[in-house]
Amino acid sequence: LQLFIKTLTGKTSTVEMEPSDTIENLKAKIQDKEGIPPDQQRLIFAGKQLEDGRTLSDYNIQKESTLHLVL
């Protein structure tokens, strides 16, 4: 599924993920695209901070969801 990652600067990146992927996997993919180390990334979806060990489906993240990346 395609996700949009929006940064505080207003920049939006697109990443392709599976519902079974963990937040950790997602942060690794963001690191590949943006060069931001996972330990500096905080991802927010629906007002919640996402935890590394959980999966996208745990948070009911659907295709074309927008996640907010806070550093």
Score class of each variant (00 low, 15 high):
residue 60 N to W: 05
residue 71 L to K: 07
residue 70 V to L: 13
residue 25 N to I: 12
residue 32 D to H: 11
residue 26 L to A: 02
residue 28 A to K: 15
residue 28 A to M: 13
residue 5 I to G: 00
residue 71 L to M: 09
residue 35 G to C: 04
residue 52 D to Q: 05
residue 34 E to P: 02
residue 53 G to A: 10
residue 66 T to E: 07
residue 26 L to T: 02
residue 37 P to D: 07
residue 26 L to G: 00
residue 22 T to A: 04
residue 67 L to Q: 01
residue 15 V to M: 09
residue 5 I to P: 00
residue 41 Q to C: 05
residue 41 Q to R: 02
residue 40 Q to H: 13
residue 31 Q to W: 15
residue 24 E to K: 12
residue 51 E to C: 08
residue 46 A to F: 09
residue 34 E to V: 14
residue 35 G to Y: 03
residue 17 M to W: 08
residue 59 Y to A: 02
residue 66 T to N: 04
residue 31 Q to H: 14
residue 49 Q to F: 14
residue 27 K to V: 02
residue 26 L to R: 00
residue 28 A to R: 15
residue 19 P to I: 09
residue 40 Q to G: 05
residue 35 G to M: 05
residue 33 K to E: 08
residue 64 E to V: 06
residue 2 Q to K: 15
residue 60 N to T: 05
residue 5 I to E: 01
residue 25 N to E: 12
residue 48 K to E: 11
residue 29 K to N: 04
residue 9 T to L: 11
residue 5 I to Y: 08
residue 10 G to P: 02
residue 1 L to T: 04
residue 22 T to K: 08
residue 51 E to K: 08
residue 21 D to W: 06
residue 61 I to A: 02
residue 39 D to F: 11
residue 70 V to T: 09
residue 35 G to L: 04
residue 71 L to V: 13
residue 56 L to I: 10
residue 43 L to I: 12
residue 56 L to H: 00
residue 35 G to T: 03
residue 11 K to V: 10
residue 21 D to K: 03
residue 47 G to E: 04
residue 16 E to K: 09
residue 51 E to M: 11
residue 15 V to D: 01
residue 55 T to E: 03
residue 68 H to L: 15
residue 51 E to R: 08
residue 67 L to S: 01
residue 65 S to Q: 07
residue 17 M to S: 05
residue 28 A to S: 10
residue 45 F to Q: 02
residue 8 L to V: 12
residue 42 R to H: 11
residue 36 I to G: 03
residue 2 Q to V: 15
residue 11 K to R: 12
residue 54 R to S: 06
residue 17 M to G: 05
residue 37 P to F: 05
residue 37 P to W: 06
residue 3 L to C: 02
residue 43 L to H: 00
residue 42 R to F: 12
residue 10 G to F: 04
residue 62 Q to Y: 09
residue 64 E to R: 11
residue 33 K to V: 12
residue 3 L to K: 01
residue 63 K to M: 13
residue 33 K to M: 15
residue 70 V to I: 13
residue 68 H to M: 14
residue 43 L to T: 00
residue 34 E to C: 14
residue 62 Q to H: 10
residue 31 Q to G: 09
residue 60 N to A: 08
residue 10 G to Q: 03
residue 69 L to P: 00
residue 36 I to K: 03
residue 47 G to M: 04
residue 23 I to P: 01
residue 69 L to G: 00
residue 46 A to P: 00
residue 42 R to T: 14
residue 21 D to E: 07
residue 52 D to L: 06
residue 70 V to C: 07
residue 33 K to A: 12
residue 3 L to D: 01
residue 59 Y to G: 00
residue 51 E to D: 08
residue 69 L to C: 01
residue 9 T to G: 13
residue 61 I to W: 03
residue 40 Q to A: 09
residue 55 T to R: 12
residue 24 E to F: 14
residue 61 I to Q: 02
residue 14 T to G: 04
residue 55 T to P: 06
residue 9 T to I: 07
residue 63 K to H: 15
residue 51 E to L: 10
residue 46 A to W: 09
residue 17 M to F: 11
